[in-house]
Structures are given as C-alpha cells and as structure tokens.
Amino acid sequence: MIKQILNDIDQNQAEIIAGLRKLIEMESSDGKATKAQEFVLKELKEMGFMTECFREDERSSSQVDYSPNRF
C-alpha cells in the first residue's frame, strides 16, 4: 500500500504545490494568520477532524517555561 500512497502523492504534485502557493498568498505576517488558518481549518474539517480554534494571550513561554526543578 505504501507504494500506492507514494504514487498518489506523485500524481497530485500539482495540487500539493498549488496548495502551498495558496497558503503563501494568504496574508499572515505580523501575527495575522486568519486567512491561512481558515484554509487549514476547512481542510481539517473536510478530512474528518474534530477541530478547535483557540488563543490564549495570558500565557507566554516566558511565564510558563521556567521550571528548573520540575523536569
């Protein structure tokens, strides 16, 4: 089956390349990622994923990632 999977990817190269180009053309610098995320969200939903969108500004790595004795 792995050969079929790899062959499938080869057959769909044009779509895979177009998909990345589409993502690039969706503005997402300076912390804006909304349009590109909408694309990702739609794709995941179509594949049958349970999805969640979230944002937690109160937590930054500076606050949490400081546990010298914990690990």
Binding site: D30, K32, A33, T34, Q37, F49, T51
Partner: peptide, 27 residues
C-alpha cells in the same frame, strides 16, 4: 493581531498504537 488564532484537529483512532501529534506554525 487580535484575530490571529491557533487551530488544532483531532481524529480518534482505535487506540492500539501510541498517539501521534503533528504541528507546524502558520505565521
């Protein structure tokens, strides 16, 4: 940006193999 957000998607499997996570950043 105030409207930027993370997206996570999960698919429940049979549970016979350890769970797997893939991630990358969109911004």
């Amino acid at each position: 940006h105030p409207e930027a957000y993370n997206v996570a998607g999960t698919i429940k499997g049979k549970g016979t193999v350890p769970s797997l996570m893939l991630f990358s950043h969109i911004d």
